[in-house]
């Protein structure tokens, strides 16, 4: 067991999977000689060479397409998109091709690619580096979408994603790369499906994914001081979404707050509310509340940025509202 940062965990998963299988390659902007914007492939260029750790031009749609083509002949590409904003350029190859090829070939061709990308807001990166697009990917048939909340999942889910036969989008987060967690020394895998209760509670369920799990955990601590025992559910996978775990927790606590860093419309929270409505409406004792980003492009100014993005404080207040305390 050793403490490891999120970026180190991703780097270790790359390293082990590349050592394990010569068909695993990594590709993306600045991932080779430069070692990756968030150091996720640091040192791997020297270890595996330029044919396996491939520095690409700034051509997201086509290098994603090249990864997809390579995966169709058995390669296992891990494609890094430097920021999820740039993934918009790759939507044609990702959604029109990778997500559909298995289906439109009648199951005869598969595209086992992994796309990794940081997909949150950081510190004053402004509108074009702060998009949160989880809701768009989770609405696409033929993709798997996962959101590791910490080093353990970042490592174990990347390893599973490389071996899985489906296209997998891993949404990381700019503010989590230095987050540390104890990780076993021996190899392990974390599954690509299934939500996880990261804090047991009985009075209210706080549902998060990716970075917002940490907001929920912080809010739960504050609620505890108020005598409210909150459960925190990490969705882990947005597609396929684990309905059972959502239902089970709601049936236990009867109250829900959903924390999402995305804008609300047609979003993760909206989907979860629909699931709750359809599957466990009568278990509710209060209207669920979404805590979400403001409906604005993310501003540069720090004060405005803070106001645009949900905080632990916002989740806490959302919970108090659901509990009828405010």
């Amino acid at each position: 067991m050793a403490e490891m940062a999120y970026w180190e965990a991703i780097r270790r998963a790359h390293d082990e999977e590349m050592a394990n299988d010569p068909l695993v390659i990594a590709m993306g902007e600045d991932i080779g000689v430069a070692g990756g914007t968030y150091k996720a492939t640091l040192g791997l260029y020297d270890k595996y060479g330029e044919e396996r750790v491939i520095d690409t031009p700034i051509s997201e749609n086509s290098y994603t397409g090249i990864g997809i083509g390579a995966s169709m002949v058995g390669m296992r590409p891990i494609i890094e998109i430097m920021s999820i904003n740039f993934a918009l350029l790759a939507l044609d190859t990702l959604i029109n091709a990778a997500a559909k090829i298995r289906y439109m070939s009648g199951g005869r061709v598969q595209c086992p690619i992994v796309m990794r990308t940081p997909g949150g807001t950081a510190h004053q990166l402004a509108a074009q580096h702060s998009a949160r697009l989880a809701r768009m990917f989770m609405s696409t048939s033929g993709l798997r979408v996962v959101t590791p909340r910490g080093p353990l999942d970042a490592y174990g889910m990347l390893k599973s994603a490389v071996r899985c036969n489906d296209p997998v989008i891993i949404i990381e987060h700019e503010q989590m790369y230095n987050l540390k967690e104890d990780i076993p020394d021996e190899e392990f895998f974390r599954p690509l499906e299934g939500a996880e209760v990261v804090r047991e509670g009985s009075d209210i369920t706080l549902i998060g994914y990716n970075y917002s799990v940490h907001l929920c955990l912080e809010a739960a601590k504050r609620l505890e001081a108020d005598g409210i025992n909150a459960e925190v559910l990490d969705l882990r996978a947005l597609k396929p979404l684990d309905h059972d775990s959502i239902r089970k927790s709601v049936e236990k606590t009867h109250r829900v707050v959903i924390a999402e860093e995305d804008e609300a419309a047609v979003g993760v929270g909206a989907e979860i509310m629909a699931v709750i409505n359809e599957e466990c409406f009568f278990a509710l004792d209060a209207q669920p509340v979404r805590v979400h980003a403001a409906d604005v492009p993310v501003p540069y100014n720090a004060r405005l940025e803070k106001a645009a993005i949900p905080s632990a404080e916002d989740v806490y207040h959302g919970a108090l509202k659901v509990m009828g305390k405010i």
Partner: peptide
């Protein structure tokens, strides 16, 4: 999508070269 086969083909070729 008529622009799609270009990169897919290059990817198929990359796989052939690699293997």
């Amino acid at each position: 999508l008529v622009g799609q086969p270009f990169p897919l083909a290059a990817g198929l070729a990359m796989g052939c070269k690699h293997k």
